[in-house]
């Protein structure tokens, strides 16, 4: 157990994996000399050398494709895409190749690739650099999608992803990198399980990634008003741990889903639909969603704040349900 930042936890996990397995390597834009756009890989070049810490050209399709090739060839690559916004340039490689090859080869060709990328808004980077498209990736069978929201998960989920035989995408919310916390898990984390972050009996707040902190904040405010909110951190969007969600609904009977992404076609809609399908009779109120405003992300700080779910929005949504 050690106190460290989210950034350090990701770095530690990569270091540990590379020390343990010579097949693991990291590549991406500025991961080497620069130490990573978010300084995640700072110091790794010195330890592991340019063969294993590889700077790439600004060509996401190319280096993600190279990562897929390396994985097919028996390596365990970690590919860092600077942010989710640029991952759109690699969508063809991810969706058409990484996700499909095991299926199309009749099980012969697995792609044990881990792709890490920063996601989300909240840093005044405006409409082209603030996307939350995790839900898009979670739509695709053949890849797994995880959203570490705590320091412990940043480390644990990366190590667990490296044990998976198929492609895994890890979404690291960019506002989390400097967050401090305990990194404790020595035992490998089980992939695909949601975490109960706060027990409660009145309402289930279901969230993931960068919205977890705001949700916990809202739960604290609600507790002051006598409402005991249960907070569930999904951690994995695909596979989705509906068991944990339904178990929570069985005693809270109300659900609010919180995510930064836009509401239309967002992942919150998927969670909501799963609840209708699997826990309809447990519901005492319609499922509510608190999502990002349906606008391209504004640059101005007050507008950006207004466009993203805030604790007061979550509190209000809960109050309307109870």
């Amino acid at each position: 157990m050690a106190k460290m930042t989210y950034r350090e936890a990701v770095r530690d996990a990569m270091r540990e994996a590379m020390r343990a397995d010579p097949l693991v390597f990291l590549m991406g834009e500025d991961v080497g000399k620069y130490g990573g756009a978010f300084a995640v890989s700072h110091g790794l070049l010195e330890e592991f050398g340019p063969q294993r810490i590889r700077d790439t050209p600004l060509s996401e399709s190319t280096f993600v494709g190279a990562g897929i090739g390396a994985a097919l060839g028996g390596m365990r690559p970690i590919v860092e895409i600077m942010t989710i916004n640029f991952s759109l340039l690699a969508l063809d490689q991810i969706v058409n190749n990484a996700a499909t090859l095991r299926h199309m080869s009749g099980g012969q060709l697995g792609v044990p690739l881990v792709i890490r990328m920063a996601t989300g808004g909240g840093r005044q980077l405006a409409a082209q650099h603030s996307h939350s498209l995790e839900g898009w990736y979670a739509h695709i069978p053949g890849i797994k999608v995880a959203t570490p929201a705590t320091v412990a998960d940043a480390r644990g989920l990366l190590l667990a992803a490296l044990q998976e035989p198929d492609p895994v995408i890890l979404f690291e919310h960019a506002t989390l990198y400097s967050q401090e916390g305990e990194s404790e898990d020595e035992t490998p984390m089980q992939f695909g399980r949601a975490a109960l972050r706060r027990p409660g009996k009145d309402v289930s707040l279901i969230t993931y990634g960068g919205a977890l902190g705001k949700t916990m904040n809202a739960a604290t405010q609600l507790a002051e008003q006598g409402v005991e909110a249960e907070v569930i951190d999904l951690r994995s969007l695909r596979p989705l741990d509906t068991e944990t969600i339904f178990a929570s609904l069985a005693h809270t009977h109300r659900a609010v889903i919180i995510e930064e992404a836009w509401k239309s076609g967002g992942f919150a809609a998927e969670v909501s639909a799963r609840i209708m399908e699997g826990a309809f009779d447990a519901l005492d109120a319609p499922v509510a969603r608190v999502c990002g405003a349906e606008v391209p992300m504004p640059y101005a700080q007050p507008l950006e704040r207004a466009a993203l779910p805030q604790p007061e929005d979550i509190v209000k949504a809960v109050q309307e349900l109870i």
Binding site: H253, F280, D281, A282, L283, D284, A285
Partner: peptide, 8 residues
């Protein structure tokens, strides 16, 4: 207006 849980 009756919630599903109440109905059940």
């Amino acid at each position: 207006r009756v919630s599903p849980a109440a109905r059940k």
